[in-house]
Design a protein around this nucleic acid. Structure first.
Length: 521
DNA sequence: GCCGGTAGCCAC
DNA sequence: AAACGTGGCTACCGGC
């Protein structure tokens, strides 16, 4: 194993090389939805019992940029910590296992999350090949365009300033140029005028400099976050980028990716999408990307048991068009693009616990129109309406909501006995309670697929390996000659990961890089 | 120089 | 006033 790979000890634990208490520690204590104070208390007690001078992990390895890897700390110093850690985790194990048992989560833990640890380790170790030369050239191109844009901005404003400073930018726009902050002077939480993109959008008619600033923002973001940062993350031993996946980093059960985050590589704009050209397959290979189509809405249809929505998915209809037809009360073949766009916004908002007001922010509907729209929506999908009400009730009464596999999220704020809870905080918690089982169930399902996929590939004698997971998408590196059967197998495994009341649908694409992907049968 | 908070923005 | 969920990264900025 490359000794320069990050988090060596975590990777070892994930591969089962390290004793189980440590791998247990890296996950379980954090993973339990309600890490109790008893947990911390037990740990301090156990530490105090040890007849060695203990230090904390932070004292050993430092923090921030000075942080060492465990391998860089002398054995003699690490040993007491390691002993204590193992000892403590060992004694914690039965207690936390009991807790899992009582929550009916032992299966989720033992049969999904723990086995997934080594799957994720394999993906991290595999890494993904990066065309650094291409990124560096793209960076120089962005640099040139940024220099030009900045020159124009300074000329139009009359002096230079730091465009990246929101404070300086606000002073230029709202004080010097006298632009009027729209929407009744929206301010940030600290009381300054906001210069966020949606605010600037409303100002672009008033002064040509605003468009230039939006352009500067886009380019500066791509340069600093992607074209400049990614090449620095290439491992010199493997010549590839090795992300880290966290199984405990989200409240819903999603994975999180960091160092670098490969779950937020641009795709929306043409320029941003160019970044993906740098993610390339090894010689003789292609990248194969398979994603779930509308998995969250399918989960809503299943969980809400909504007849109309289930039927739409069973017939493989265009769900947004079907929704539009239902809400506008017209036949499917006369749905206009505009009607479909609005229906899509509602379907999208549904998963986020949206309100009619929220809808006015993502569409051009007035509040009254949005209210009518939502009413019509629930009229046509009564199962969905009941489901949303049920979720709110359960979250408050039971104190938590659950995913398909029993993953929990607690909502103490919604307890009827909770005191001093603002309406804003309550509404937010309700939206979180609505979204969590949907987003979390999607995470459950793709994790099941990821767990089965390596075995299925082996069984079929296919050499492809999983490299990346992006919430509803798996990216594999696949020998060119095995593309067709691999695509078929991956799609089968993903579709069959869990049987819902509606079919799961997947789309497969492949290409030499992550930008130019052609559909695969 | 380190650290944490803030603003902004990339993805699903 | 805010108003649509989940993350991570970068730059700025003020405090130490």
């Amino acid at each position: 194993m490359g000794h320069n790979l990050k988090y060596d000890y975590v990777v070892l634990a994930r591969l089962g090389v390290m004793p189980s208490p440590l791998s247990f520690d890296t996950m379980l204590a954090e993973w339990l939805c309600d890490p109790s104070s008893r947990n911390l208390g037990l740990k301090s007690l156990a530490w105090a019992r040890l007849d060695v001078e203990m230090t904390t992990i932070q004292e050993l390895i430092g923090s921030g940029r000075n942080q060492l890897s465990m391998a860089e700390v002398p054995i003699a110093q690490v040993a007491p910590y390691a002993v204590a850690d193992a000892q403590i985790c060992l004694s914690l194990m039965p207690i936390l296992k009991d807790e899992l048992q009582s929550k009916n989560q032992l299966g989720l833990f033992d049969e999904l999350e723990m086995p997934l640890v080594s799957v994720l380790a394999q993906m991290e170790i595999a890494g993904v090949r990066l065309d650094t030369g291409f990124l560096k050239e793209l960076s120089r191109e962005l640099e040139r365009r940024l220099a030009e844009i900045e020159k124009e901005i300074f000329k139009q404003v009359g002096h230079s300033f730091n465009i990246n400073s929101t404070q300086q930018l606000a002073a230029v726009l709202f004080d010097e140029l006298g632009l009027k902050p729209p929407g009744g002077a929206r301010r940030t939480s600290s009381g300054h005028y906001s210069t966020a993109a949606d605010v600037l959008e409303e100002l672009r008619e008033l002064n040509p400099v605003v468009d230039r600033i939006l352009e500067q923002r886009e380019l500066a973001k791509l340069k600093s976050t992607y074209t400049d940062a990614l090449p620095q993350q290439v491992n010199p031993d493997t010549q590839r980028v090795h992300t880290s996946y966290s199984q405990t980093g989200s409240v819903t059960g999603r994975l999180a990716s960091s160092d670098p985050n490969l779950q937020n590589i641009p795709i929306r704009t043409d320029l941003g999408r160019q970044i993906r050209r740098a993610f390339i397959a090894a010689p003789g290979h292609v990248l194969l990307s398979v994603d779930y189509s509308q998995i969250e809405l399918r989960i809503v249809a299943h969980t809400a048991n909504d007849k109309a929505m289930i039927q739409a998915f069973k017939q493989d209809q265009d769900i947004h068009a079907t929704t539009a037809a239902a809400v506008f009360g017209v036949p499917a073949d006369v749905v206009s693009p505009e009607m479909r766009r609005r229906a899509k916004a509602v379907n999208f908002g549904l998963i986020y616990g949206m309100s009619p007001f929220g809808l006015t922010r993502t569409t051009d509907l007035t509040l009254a129109e949005a209210q009518n729209f939502v009413d019509a929506y629930f009229e046509r999908f009564p199962g969905v309406r009941n489901y949303l009400e049920e979720i709110r009730r359960v979250a408050a009464q039971q104190g938590y909501v659950e995913t398909l596999l029993g993953r929990r999220r607690y909502f103490p704020l919604l307890d009827p006995g909770a005191t001093a809870v603002s309406a804003v905080a309550r509404a937010r918690a309700e939206r979180e309670a609505i979204n969590s089982p949907i987003q979390g169930t999607a995470a459950d399902i793709i994790k099941l697929a990821m767990l089965h996929l390596p075995d299925e590939l082996t069984r079929s004698g296919l050499a492809a390996r999983m490299l990346l997971q992006v919430h509803d998408e798996l990216v594999l590196e696949c020998p060119v000659k095995e593309l067709k059967p691999t695509s078929a197998l991956v799609q089968r495994v993903m579709r069959d990961a869990f049987k819902l009341k509606v079919p799961l649908k997947t789309d497969a694409k492949s290409g030499a890089d992550w930008a130019v992907m052609e559909p695969v049968a």
